[in-house]
Design a protein around this nucleic acid. Structure first.
Lengths: 335, 335
DNA sequence: TTTAGATACTAAACCGGTTTAGTGAATCCA
DNA sequence: TGGATTCACTAAACCGGTTTAGTATCTAAA
């Protein structure tokens, strides 16, 4: 038979309310009684039932993190996993269970509502911006349901954590400019995707601002071979760039390959910086200067905000938090 | 006020037991009544409370998946994420909530017990072999607690899903042999790690079996630069290998770089096959023939087994299931 | 001496379902 | 026609905690 709070109460010679108070530090219980009860709990190896606590208490010690995995899209996956782990590290310590759910399980909005809002299973939600439909959003807001959005969310009524891709581009261009590079190419990604387009636009602006002569946007899939081809084209053009900003590590690899093939030097002839959503820059040879996107930190921040919302009953101010990328400078840019 | 089963019962003019029976298809309820109740549920937008169902019913519709993430070890992370997603896809459909927990939250065995076994929060567990201590294992077995181990587990009393690394090596060596390659090198990984050592041992055996003349084991970290150096050494030795089996994609990249630098041809002069825990082989140029490790499938299988254990009260036969890798043959091996 | 307030507890309601045991009416069979 | 079954349904106990409202005892102030 499973141990219950009643067993402890009986053994300790107190009521179950007192045991509950000891467990939760809710009402003041004198040290002597408290110690007696705790001793019995230890002796009997008692752990309160989580489900019962959830049901009896108003709040559930459980939050959900929605992820969006497409099998075989490994950039995307690494991104979400890292966020998930960041969120987990915070929420676990804050005594929350983390429920995960993949987007593809939520084939329609009603299912989503049922699973996360109406059934009362979780008391908070972390959700990527692109999954949050208008219907769901307004429902959450209407119900005062605590949630944090991952990604760009302009609305003031909601809480969000975003990565400042533009700042990443600015930092990269600024570094290039300060080291005397004069013309830039952006390799990889597509203007049609949100994240690359943010980076590209910022790179264009930054080039104007920091006096980089020209800025070529070279869209292509983020594979080694596509970026290799793209870079070959650029190098054989009339005015080849002397600085390349890559959309991700594999683009960087392709660029490296093309540059070396022309017997050009990195960083002397061509400087390379890459966006780095997953920390693999150091696996490359030589290491690439990277705009480090701290996805783990993104998860951490989202979880902290959620936790804050969950604790303050009064409802805290809604904020949009930006994760500012940092440059990890290595040998692929002139000293 | 939150909608409860009582509201539905009242509105539909039946008892809450009847509503419960309709929800669960437990006792036979005539179509007419059933439809009436369902209609009320739809009209009122009622969804049963998950926590209450968990508490009232004997079993909890929730299982935990333990992951083991070290920040910045991206091979490792991708491995677990993929397993997690596989498990999620099965368990979500089977009406389970998936709780995740990272190993580093479980600083000691007692904490683990508390969180997953004693507090009754989950009714099943998926756990990597290296996290399962003897104490925890025997406790789980003693309590008849359903769990599935990811990885190698020799014991008959437990359920496990493992990747057959040896078969991977055999397949690779067999292919090399059949295409006329004569001497092999294994690049990457370390004999001290479980997975690489399994692969290396199998490769050694397979070479004997398939008539590959020599088999050099070249241990090194799985980075581009380390494997590049390793491969350079091999190529400048007196008897360079004409076939290379790589421990992972980045080793393969290093090997590629070294081979091309010597102006040798892949696959004519040197054939390359790589183990591929995460599906990025196609990002490389040219694509590498890969021993595909289906980690997603691993998660799926583990979840299926767990689900089976959870459903059959009688306790099912304990099995060890092996995930057999497949070869994805591309241009890096002679046709 | 009375009383207001604090202290140390507890009984009982409650959370929102599931499940058991049982009831009244209709049907079946001999 | 009466007893046994089946049918359709329900009352009430239960899951294991939390929380509210309240009680008995003691202390301190009026």
């Amino acid at each position: 038979m499973k141990l219950t709070i009643n067993d402890i109460a009986r053994k300790a010679g107190v009521s179950k309310s007192t045991v509950s108070n000891v467990i939760n530090n809710y009402l003041w219980v004198p040290e002597s009684t408290k110690e007696k009860v705790l001793q019995v709990m230890r002796d009997m190896n008692y752990v309160p039932d989580k489900t019962a606590r959830n049901l009896a208490g108003k709040k559930r010690h459980q939050v959900a993190v929605i992820i969006d995995t497409e099998q075989n899209n490994y950039f995307n996956d690494a991104f979400f996993y890292s966020i998930l782990c960041g969120a987990e590290s915070v929420l676990s310590s804050a005594d929350f269970d983390i429920s995960i759910c993949n987007r593809n399980q939520l084939t329609n909005e009603m299912l989503f509502m049922d699973r996360f809002i109406l059934n009362g299973g979780v008391s908070g939600l972390i959700i990527p911006a692109h999954i949050l439909t208008e219907t769901i959003k307004s429902r959450l807001v209407k119900d005062l349901f605590p949630f944090v959005v991952i990604g760009d969310s302009k609305e003031s009524s909601i809480m969000s954590v975003n990565i400042s891709n533009s700042v990443g581009s600015y930092l990269a261009v600024e570094l290039f400019a300060s080291k005397g590079y004069r013309s830039l190419a952006y390799v990889g990604g597509s203007f049609n995707e949100i994240i690359p387009s943010e980076r590209m636009n910022a790179a264009l602006k930054a080039c104007g601002q920091y006096g980089i002569r020209s800025c070529i946007i070279k869209e292509c899939p983020d594979t080694v071979s596509d970026s290799y081809n793209a870079m070959c084209e650029l190098l054989s053009s009339s005015e080849p760039p002397d600085a390349v900003l890559c959309n991700d590590n594999f683009s960087a690899l392709g660029v490296y390959t093309a540059v070396r093939e022309k017997s050009l030097s990195i960083p002397d002839d061509v400087g390379v910086i890459t966006f780095n959503t997953i920390p693999i820059a150091s696996y490359l040879n030589p290491p690439v200067t990277a705009v480090k996107i701290d996805t783990f930190g993104l998860g951490v921040k989202a979880a902290l905000l959620l936790n804050e919302m969950l604790l303050s009953a009064s409802g805290i101010e809604h904020i949009h938090h930006d994760i500012i990328p940092e440059l990890e400078i290595t040998g692929s840019v002139r000293m």
